[in-house]
């Protein structure tokens, strides 16, 4: 089932590349995000799936539509033939595929990532923090510094948007005087 969803995501991405109407691109991106959320739930990442469904398919679609309202919704025909970017992307892709040949197979329980710190979180997490949801326990307790940093990044990005979007509004208000 996961393979089917992944194939659908690849199709949606291809449609995004080909499509030139930006409104359609944004809606396709919403579909893509919902497919991604479904895949994440199928991969047992329920917390991440919930976040992706509300953020990717909800908030970012609203933001993109808001920007399209302020700008033009038709993409210009590209001036040059995209041969160089295509060659570059294909070369990168082949190198990455070559790199995957040495990676452990999907759902291999002996993969290094399953033997390092994760067993300790799963075995000791409930006893040490009293929180059954290990993701919450790791997020807020074991990796609290990390989350503090991420929250600060969200804060900083918000401040950046405020700085970018507010200045011009004040200038406009002064103009009529």
């Amino acid at each position: 089932m996961i393979s089917v969803l992944l194939t659908l995501m690849a199709i949606a991405t291809t449609a995004i590349i080909v499509q030139r109407n930006l409104f359609a691109v944004v809606i396709l991106f919403g579909i893509y995000s919902f497919l991604m959320a479904t895949v994440l739930v199928a991969l047992d990442a329920v917390d991440v799936g919930m976040t992706e469904a509300s953020v990717g398919a909800g908030i970012s679609t609203v933001l993109f539509l808001g920007v399209l309202y302020l700008t033009r919704s038709e993409e210009m025909k590209p001036m040059h033939r995209p041969l160089l970017p295509l060659a570059f992307a294909l070369a990168t892709g082949f190198m990455l595929v070559y790199g995957t040949l040495g990676l452990p197979a999907f759902s291999d329980p002996d993969a290094p990532m399953h033997r390092h710190v994760a067993p300790r979180y799963i075995n000791e997490g409930l006893r040490e923090t009293g929180v059954p949801n290990i993701v919450t326990a790791v997020l807020a307790s074991y990796r609290g510094y990390d989350t503090l940093g991420e929250t600060t990044v969200v804060f900083t990005a918000g401040i950046g948007v405020i700085a970018l979007m507010r200045r011009i509004r004040r200038r406009r208000r002064e103009q009529p005087k």
Binding site: A45, G56, A118, Y121, E150, V154
Partner: peptide, 19 residues
């Protein structure tokens, strides 16, 4: 159980991503 560590890393990355 599936590995919880990547879930934590990506959970925060999504919200930072939209910001």
């Amino acid at each position: 159980y599936s590995n919880p560590l990547p879930h934590v890393l990506i959970l925060t990355a999504i919200v930072v991503g939209v910001a």
